[in-house]
Design a protein around this nucleic acid. Structure first.
Ligand SMILES: [Mn+2]
Ligand SMILES: [Mn+2]
Ligand SMILES: [Mn+2]
Ligand SMILES: [Mn+2]
Lengths: 224, 224
DNA sequence: ATTTTTTTTTAGTTTCGCCTAAAAATTATC
DNA sequence: GATAATTTTTAGGCGAAACTAAAAAAAAAT
C-alpha cells in the first residue's frame, strides 16, 4: 500500500508522540505538524478509515499494528538517508534532517534495502537515534540522560534529543559530538548547570537545558 | 522558487517534446504525461501565469528561458540519481528510471551538487544521456543512429533512446550495453534488419526497430 | 467553399489537504 | 454542581490537480 506524503507525516508524528504519552491528542499533533486542530481531525478520520490508527472522537489516537509498522518504515528511511548525507556526502549533522524529511517519502522498498546495504547496515543515525531494520525491529540502545550521570564517572555521548541547528552549533562550539567522552566534575545548585570535561580536556560549564538533551552510556563499575 | 512535482513533470515533458518539434501541442503533452487534454490546458494556464512557458490558446507551447533552466535542473537531478542507483547501489539500468522519477523532485540544491561531486561528476547517465552541469550546460555528445553506421566500421554504443524494461531485456540478451563495440556485417532489404557483431563475437541479427533506438560513435577513418 | 474530422478549450465535478469560524464536548475551577 | 476555560469537532470554503461532457476553434477533406 502507498500513502501520501501528508499521511506518512501524520503517522510518523503520532509514533513519536506516542513515545511520550501512549494516547495522542489532536492539539499535540497539530503543534507537531505545524497545522490546525481542525485539519488534524479531518485527517484522523481518514487514517482511521484506512485502519492505520485507532480513533474515536474526543478520545485521542493510537497507532494500529499496521500504522506502527508503517511509522517504523518511514523512520528507517529517514535515518538511513540522514546517515547517507553525513557519511557519504559530507553534510553537517544539523543540515540533514530537513532533506531527509523529503527523502523519507521515496517509495521504493528495494531502494532503501540497497541503500542500507551500501551504507554497511548502520545501527544509528548521525544524531545517535537507532535505525529500525527491514523487519521494523529497533535496536535497543542503553542510554541515560547526562543529568543522571554521577560526578566523576566517564561516559560516551550516545545521542541528542534535539537536532536544531542552534543546539548543534552549541555542541560544535564545545567540541562535543556523538562518541565524545564526557565527565561531570561539578554540579551547581543555583541553576542546575554542570561543569564537565570533554575528552579529558579543561572543565567547561553547560546549562541544564543543554544537558537535558544529551544522552550517554557508561559502564556500571567504571569510575576512572 | 519551488514548484510542485506536477509542475516539474510538465516542464520536463515540454522540454523533451521540444526536442522533436519546437512547438508542443496539448495532445502531445497529454499523451506524454498520461493525462487528459483538458487537464493539460488547465495546467498550461498556470505555467504561463508563472512565466515558465509561452502559451496562447490554440497556438501550442514553448518553454521560456526560466522554464528551460528549470527543465535542465530537473533532468540533471534525474540523471545523477540514475547514475547513483546503477553505480553505487547496483541497480539494473532498466529499474532506475521509475525511482529517479521520484528522486528528481527532492528540492535541495546542495544535495544535488554534493551528489554530483560524490559520483565524480559523471558526464552521462546509465542510458548514455548527457547530464547537465550545475549551470545547466549539457555536454554535447557526438553520436549517430546505428542505422547510419556504414558496413564494416566498428563503433561504440553511446546511448539508447528507449529505456523500457522490454528493450533493455533484449539488449541484455544480445549482451549489448553502453560502451559495447558493434559492427554491421550485413543489411537486409526486406525488413531492414541488420546483421551485426557484438564485441567482435559471432554475427547476430537485430531488427530495424531495435537499431533505431541505438546510438553509436565511430572515428571517421576507422575501418578496421 | 462547405462539410467533416481533429484538436483544444470551457464548464462543471471530484478528491485531497488545508483553512476559519462556530458549535459541542470535555476538563478545570470556584 | 454550576460556571468557566480548554479542547475537539463540525460546517463551510479554498486552491491544486485531476476528471467527463460539451462547446468552440482549427485543420483536413471533399
Ligand atoms: Mn516528511
Ligand atoms: Mn536523526
Ligand atoms: Mn517526476
Ligand atoms: Mn536516463
Amino acid at each position: 500500500m502507498k500513502y501520501s506524503t501528508s499521511k506518512e507525516n501524520y503517522i510518523k508524528a503520532i509514533y513519536h508522540l506516542e513515545q511520550e504519552d501512549p494516547v495522542v491528542s489532536t492539539n499535540a499533533l497539530a503543534r507537531q505538524l505545524a497545522t490546525k486542530p481542525a485539519s488534524v481531525t479531518d485527517m484522523l478520520k481518514k487514517l482511521n478509515e484506512q485502519e492505520l490508527i485507532h480513533y474515536e472522537p474526543y478520545k485521542g489516537v493510537k497507532l494500529t499494528d499496521s500504522g506502527n509498522k508503517l511509522a517504523l518504515q518511514i523512520i528507517r528511511k529517514h535515518r538511513l538517508w540522514e546517515f547517507f548525507l553525513v557519511e557519504k556526502l559530507g553534510f553537517g549533522w544539523e543540515e540533514v534532517h530537513e532533506i531527509a524529511e523529503e527523502l523519507e517519502h521515496i517509495s521504493s522498498k528495494k531502494l532503501i534495502d540497497r541503500l542500507d546495504e551500501f551504507l554497511g547496515r548502520p545501527k544509528t543515525d548521525p544524531h545517535g537515534d537507532p535505525i529500525p531494520d527491514a523487519a521494523g525491529i529497533v535496536p535497543k540502545i542503553e542510554k541515560r540522560c547526562l543529568l543522571d550521570l554521577p560526578i566523576g564517572v566517564s561516559a560516551d555521548l550516545i545521542s541528542v534529543s534535539n537536532q536544531s541547528a542552534d543546539m548543534l552549533d552549541l555542541l560544535r562550539h564545545h567540541q562535543i559530538e556523538i562518541g565524545t567522552r564526557l565527565k561531570i566534575t561539578n554540579r551547581f545548585r543555583f541553576d542546575h548547570s554542570l561543569q564537565i570535561t570533554v575528552q579529558g580536556g579543561p572543565p567547561v560549564t553547560i546549562s541544564e537545558q543543554l544537558a537535558a538533551h544529551l544522552f550517554v552510556a557508561w559502564a556500571k563499575d567504571e569510575t576512572d
